[in-house]
Write a protein that binds this DNA or RNA. Structure first.
Length: 388
DNA sequence: ACCTGGTCCCGGGCTCGGTTTT
DNA sequence: AAAACCGAGCCCGGGACCAGGT
């Protein structure tokens, strides 16, 4: 915990934390600077992009593996370090004996969950390459492409990491390649997604290197949890056995395991416990639907969608008996959307797997309604969105 | 050089009406 | 027949760019 936070606690008359030191350390959407237990993945990625160390542009890469396997954690951390060490500025790597002048290669990380159109992709890339902000509205896609082309013409080499490819509501691999195609000489893409290459169209592109990531093994995941718990919770808030069990339950998915631990911590803190009891952990696990979608997807939804979800979570079971009923109930709150739009949005969210429609028993005439259920870790979502 | 109205851009709310399912 | 479902086009707001006038 930071000193600033400690001081803030005292100012508000709070005593030392009894359980949670730092929710960020437990959060499945916050990645540490140094991911635990994914060394070999880092090595394989470095192999793929080896040419950059001579200032050349490597061929494109596709990294794929299941949800919660640490893909994003590794890519984010790796790109941040690469950009710091050999990217941008006039950088030179100083060794004890000599200065190696490295032709600069820049590294840009893009999340396809936020950049969901071809326009948004190019915009995001350009925005990171130039210092002054690029307008997001009022300027055509053509204009963005022209500016980007001019940037890349001047001998710049750029590696673009595009995370979360081929999710519903995000970019497809084909679209990304198509968008980046005009700039290829000075630019390479590293795509990250869940689908196997054959299912994404990447398989048809021979020049693309592929890297497969497996889910965490049980004890590797337990180590991740131990490391997170030691940063986020007071000492002895959890036991080794507990974290091992959690790892087993999560079956290699670090996202779900952390979401459950986070939820358990919230509930334990509410109950005034100084450690996480089995009952707390059970509640935490219960609030993580499996299979479910990752929190990152939910948190990158537009504001209006998140407002709808916040209210949907609060709704009593009876108000979620059908999509129409849920739309009615939500529109009673102060959401600045019409009832029809809310209903439409609920169908959209169901399409994306963020909420689920569960068919109910037929209740008379007509097509039976479907109950609305949440498809993501609700406790974590509520906690993260209720804060200012 | 500065103002101002016109035009184009993108994204997101909204609605309509056809289709599917029981 | 009735209700759930949903594809897709319209519309509008805010922003940038442009040109013509002062």
């Amino acid at each position: 915990m930071k000193i600033e936070e400690r001081i803030a606690r005292r100012q508000h008359g709070e005593s030392d934390p009894r359980l949670v030191l730092d929710y960020d350390a437990l959060s499945p959407v916050v990645h540490p600077q140094e991911p635990v237990g994914r060394g070999s993945l880092v090595e394989r990625l470095l192999d793929c992009i080896e040419p950059v160390f001579d200032g050349r542009v490597p061929s494109d890469v596709y990294v794929w593996g299941p949800k919660g396997a640490g893909k994003s954690a590794v890519i984010r951390a790796l790109f941040a370090q690469l950009d710091r060490l050999i990217g941008r500025s006039d950088s030179q790597i100083l060794t004890t004996t000599r200065a190696i002048p490295t032709p600069s290669v820049e590294f840009v990380y893009i999340d396809a969950r936020t950049a969901t159109t071809g326009f948004a992709l190019l915009h995001a890339v350009l925005d990171q390459l130039v210092s002054d902000p690029v307008p997001k509205q009022g300027v055509g896609a053509e204009a963005i492409a022209t500016r980007l082309d001019r940037q890349l013409a001047s001998d710049r080499a750029v590696i673009i990491g595009v995370d979360h490819i081929n999710e519903p509501e995000s970019l497809s691999a084909d679209l990304v390649f198509e968008q980046l195609q005009p700039f290829t000489p000075g630019l390479a893409a590293l795509l990250v997604g869940r689908d196997p290459p054959t299912a994404t169209g990447v398989g048809d592109r021979e020049a693309v290197q592929t890297v497969h990531v497996d889910g965490y093994r049980r004890h590797a995941l337990a180590e991740v949890l131990t490391s997170r718990a030691s940063n986020g919770l007071v000492r002895s808030a959890t036991t080794h056995g507990q974290l091992r069990e959690l790892a087993t339950w999560a079956d290699g998915d670090a996202h779900d395991a952390l979401a459950a631990l986070f939820g358990a911590s919230v509930i334990a803190e509410q109950r005034g416990h100084e450690k996480i009891y089995p009952a707390d952990m059970a509640v935490g696990m219960h609030a993580v639907p499996r299979p479910g979608v990752s929190l990152g997807r939910v948190l990158s939804l537009p504001d209006s969608r998140q407002r709808i979800l916040s209210h949907l979570i609060e709704l009593p079971e009876s108000d979620r008996r059908s999509v129409g009923a849920a739309a009615d109930a939500i529109s009673a709150y102060n959401v600045e959307l019409s009832r029809a739009t809310i209903e439409r949005v609920l169908y959209e969210l169901a399409e994306a797997g963020i909420v689920r429609r569960v068919k109910a028993q037929s209740t008379g005439t007509g097509r039976p309604p479907s109950r609305v259920e949440l498809g993501f870790p609700t406790r974590v979502f509520s906690h993260l969105t209720s804060e200012p």
